[in-house]
Every structure is written in structure tokens, then in C-alpha cells.
């Protein structure tokens, strides 16, 4: 059988919120390592990859590797039934037709049990190559969310330019141009609020704001986001989640014809 109990159940709710608008259905792959998911959006423009390590659960039991084929909208609806302070347990048999989600209140006075039908999903698994990125930008996740929101008012795309002066996000539309420049800040003792840039080569790439905005749904999961950019390659947007794992998004760039 498979059983994974997450004391901080709100994390599962947040992971769900971070993928449900991007991915319609996906396999949650459960192994001894933990629970992982890889899926593309319906347009195949972006890819999401997440890992919830087994040691983030208490207890975690996986007798046999299984894939839980799940409709995200249905699971999101069920996750909304869990309170933020609930303990969430995911449970299924070795050859499952359905999965059970159990939500326990902290004092265990209330226990909710939701059973959901599984789907047969024939998903394509993509190999993500190791890439030497031209620039790796770390910034507060809330700052990145703000930039995507603000520039969405100006245009459909954002041009990310990274050089020795810092990183610039710019958008262009019928009404004009918006530019947001961030410099690496020198505050050492305030790690969460830092912008840091690891620059190997100056780089400039354009991405669809619609997808980056979907990615920022992961903001409640982490204080920091990392953007890894390389010429003519997808950007990797990573949110590392304390004590359990990560959610990474990849977005193909827009290329000038």
C-alpha cells in the first residue's frame, strides 16, 4: 500500500494551487524517494516538475511504485475542503482505482475522508538536460510576482536582460513600455530579501507573461525564487520548499522570427 502523512497539510494545498491552473491532468509518481510529478501545460509551452521527498512526510510508506493519474481540477476541489492546519494523509492500494485523502484537525476531533477516482494517463516523460546557465537570478518570490503582475498591465511578453549592471524586466505594448531594473543588493544579513545574480554571460530572452504569471501561483510556497536563464533555452523558475522539496517550472522562450 501507499500512505503519506503530511503534518503541515497546508503545503499540499499550496502545491495544488501552484499547478492546477497550468496542468489539467497528471500522474503523481509515488516511489520510495517520495512523490514526484512532471507535466506539460495543454499547449506544451511549459513544463512543471515537483518533488515531495519521503522524509518530509511522517510516516511515509510505499510498498510498490505507483502512479496516481489525477485530474487536477478534481483534486484541487478536494484540497480546498482541507483546513490550513489539518494534517493530510494520501492513501491508496498497490493497484489503485482510487485514492483517499484524509484531513485530520489538529486536535483530531474532526476527520474528513475523501475518495477520488483515478484516471489512466498516458503521459510523456521528458528528460531535462543539465544546462550551464548564463545567469542565475535569485530574488524574493513576492518581488517576482509583483514584476509579472505589473508588466502584464503593459504587454504580453517580458524581456529579461541580465548583465553586469543587474537584471532588467521589460514589457512593451500598445500603450507604451515598462522597465523594471533590479540591482544585486549588498545586504548580507537579510537573506530572504536579497536579489543575487550569478552571471556567466550577459543574456537577453523574451517570455510569455501569461505562463510566468501561472508560475507565480507557487509564491506562498517559498520566500525566494530562482530564475535560471540561458540563451535560446527555456527559463527554469524554481521555488525550493523548506524540508520537503521543490517545484520547478520551465518555459520555452519566444524567438524573433
Amino acid at each position: 500500500m501507499f500512505e503519506a502523512r503530511l503534518v503541515q497539510g497546508s503545503l499540499m494545498k499550496k502545491f495544488m494551487e501552484a499547478i492546477k491552473d497550468l496542468v489539467k491532468e497528471a500522474n503523481w509518481d509515488c516511489t520510495g524517494t517520495g512523490i514526484s510529478l512532471q507535466a506539460m501545460d495543454t499547449s506544451h509551452v511549459s513544463l512543471v516538475s515537483l518533488l515531495l521527498r519521503s522524509d518530509g512526510f511522517d510516516p511515509y510508506r510505499c510498498d510498490r511504485n505507483i502512479s496516481l493519474g489525477i485530474n487536477m481540477e478534481s483534486m484541487a476541489k478536494i484540497m480546498k475542503c482541507a483546513s490550513n492546519d489539518d494534517v493530510i494523509t494520501i492513501r491508496s492500494e498497490d493497484h489503485p482505482d482510487n485514492v483517499t485523502f484524509v484531513f485530520e484537525s489538529p486536535n483530531q476531533e474532526k476527520v474528513c475522508d475523501y475518495e477520488m477516482k483515478l484516471m489512466d494517463i498516458d503521459s510523456e516523460h521528458l528528460g531535462i538536460p543539465d544546462t550551464e546557465y548564463d545567469a542565475i537570478i535569485s530574488m524574493p518570490a513576492s518581488e517576482f510576482q509583483r514584476i509579472c503582475r505589473d508588466l502584464s498591465n503593459i504587454g504580453d511578453s517580458v524581456k529579461i536582460t541580465c548583465n553586469k549592471d543587474g537584471v532588467q524586466f521589460s514589457a512593451q505594448g500598445d500603450t507604451g513600455i515598462g522597465k523594471i531594473a533590479l540591482k544585486q543588493n549588498a545586504v548580507i544579513d537579510k537573506e530572504d530579501g536579497q536579489v543575487s545574480i550569478e552571471l556567466n554571460d550577459p543574456v537577453s530572452l523574451t517570455f510569455a507573461l501569461r505562463y510566468l504569471t501561472f508560475f507565480t501561483k507557487a509564491t506562498p510556497l517559498a520566500s525566494t525564487v530562482t530564475l535560471s536563464v540561458s540563451a535560446k533555452n527555456p527559463v527554469a523558475v524554481e521555488y525550493r520548499v523548506d524540508d520537503i522539496g521543490y517545484i520547478r517550472y520551465y518555459l520555452a522562450p519566444k524567438i524573433e522570427e
Binding site: 506544451h44 509551452v45 521528458l126 528528460g127 538536460p129 511578453s157 527555456p234 518555459l251 524567438i255 522570427e257
Partner: peptide
Amino acid sequence: VAKQGVISQYFSSL
């Protein structure tokens, strides 16, 4: 005009 790429151009099937 910029053209949106797809992810499978960059990542291959396993």
C-alpha cells in the same frame, strides 16, 4: 514578431 516555442523542442522524450 516573436514566435512562442514549445518545450519539446528543448527537452526530449525519455
